[in-house]
Simulated scan of single mutants.
Amino acid sequence: MSEALVQLQRVTVQFDDRPVVDQVTLQASRGDIITIIGPNGAGKTTLIKTILGIQKASQGRVSLAPGLTIGYVPQHLTLEATLPLSVRRFMLLSGQSLTDCRAALKRTGVDHLLDASVHHLSGGEKQRLLLARALARKPDLLVLDEPAQGVDINGQAALYELIRELRDELHCAVIMISHDLHLVMAATDKVICLNQHVCCSGYPADISHDPAFIETFGHQVAESLAVYHHRHNHSHDLHGDVVDTKGTQGACNHEHH
């Protein structure tokens, strides 16, 4: 049985006596990729902050494995525009060694940007930088809030593929929030549909048939997910361009059914 790293038992978070997260129970074990989906205002980011210890639960219990190391990828990178900051400096602010920082940047495909200004990075480069910063900690648990924010569709597919690879390499657990439902269904092991409370949860292949999922996202979305299959005969590079198995660029050939 896989080691449980995080357990939430009937967790409620209230603001002004109004429950933003209501009686949520979940468990993440090593090897899991759990994706939290739901409409705007559903409490997804609040739930993540509660797991991270940034937000205190009003009720219930949050249990973390002893000595747990967490790597966190926030939704946005907010920096003072007039503050000069290189990728190297940004990474070293994490408290990790330059060797570990370089290795993490290389693994996420942005080591060539070591001396670049963080302000001049593209959306995809920023997300990979944030992922590298979390990766440098060698986390047991990787927590990602909308990791593909600001990344184009092909770059999103490559990013989710990288997250799965990192899960395998680190044998960590992954909890992430996402709105990219089609891509998430191919990239996750379990889906939790949140709308303050847990509406439904389960395997991606099953969740689209759940009445609570259909009520939350509508029949059209549910039907499109039910018949969606995504197969690759290639890979994408950092910029979303197609690279075939021989390493040459070409046209994208996705098959959706």
Rank of each mutant, 00 (worst) to 15 (best):
residue 144 L to D: 08
residue 57 A to K: 07
residue 34 I to C: 03
residue 12 T to E: 01
residue 170 L to T: 08
residue 67 G to K: 11
residue 35 T to C: 12
residue 192 I to S: 03
residue 125 E to L: 03
residue 23 Q to I: 04
residue 4 A to I: 14
residue 40 N to R: 11
residue 243 V to R: 07
residue 140 D to H: 13
residue 145 D to W: 12
residue 181 L to Q: 09
residue 8 L to N: 08
residue 191 V to W: 08
residue 49 K to W: 12
residue 17 D to T: 12
residue 161 E to M: 00
residue 53 G to N: 05
residue 180 D to M: 03
residue 60 G to M: 02
residue 38 G to M: 04
residue 191 V to R: 09
residue 173 A to D: 09
residue 239 H to E: 05
residue 182 H to P: 14
residue 227 V to T: 15
residue 64 L to W: 10
residue 213 F to E: 07
residue 63 S to A: 09
residue 79 L to N: 12
residue 236 H to Y: 15
residue 240 G to R: 10
residue 187 A to F: 11
residue 14 Q to V: 08
residue 191 V to E: 02
residue 86 S to G: 13
residue 26 L to N: 08
residue 19 P to A: 00
residue 85 L to R: 07
residue 87 V to E: 03
residue 255 E to N: 12
residue 202 G to C: 04
residue 224 S to D: 11
residue 24 V to T: 07
residue 46 T to R: 03
residue 165 E to N: 11
residue 215 E to A: 06
residue 233 N to F: 14
residue 110 V to H: 05
residue 9 Q to V: 10
residue 123 G to M: 05
residue 120 H to C: 01
residue 26 L to S: 09
residue 11 V to R: 04
residue 135 L to V: 11
residue 201 S to W: 14
residue 70 I to V: 15
residue 58 S to M: 09
residue 136 A to C: 15
residue 78 T to W: 02
residue 217 F to H: 06
residue 36 I to N: 04
residue 244 D to F: 10
residue 240 G to Y: 12
residue 148 A to T: 15
residue 117 S to Y: 06
residue 150 G to Y: 09
residue 240 G to P: 06
residue 240 G to Q: 09
residue 21 V to A: 00
residue 248 T to W: 10
residue 1 M to R: 15
residue 250 G to W: 14
residue 116 A to T: 15
residue 42 A to K: 07
residue 253 N to L: 10
residue 111 D to S: 08
residue 38 G to H: 11
residue 180 D to W: 09
residue 159 L to Y: 05
residue 254 H to F: 14
residue 196 Q to D: 01
residue 55 Q to P: 12
residue 245 T to I: 11
residue 168 D to P: 13
residue 161 E to V: 04
residue 194 L to M: 06
residue 196 Q to G: 05
residue 66 P to C: 00
residue 14 Q to I: 03
residue 127 Q to M: 03
residue 153 I to E: 05
residue 39 P to I: 00
residue 74 P to I: 01
residue 190 K to M: 05
residue 140 D to P: 14
residue 169 E to F: 02
residue 233 N to G: 10
residue 124 G to Y: 10
residue 53 G to L: 06
residue 90 F to C: 02
residue 120 H to F: 13
residue 231 R to M: 03
residue 64 L to M: 13
residue 147 P to H: 00
residue 153 I to D: 00
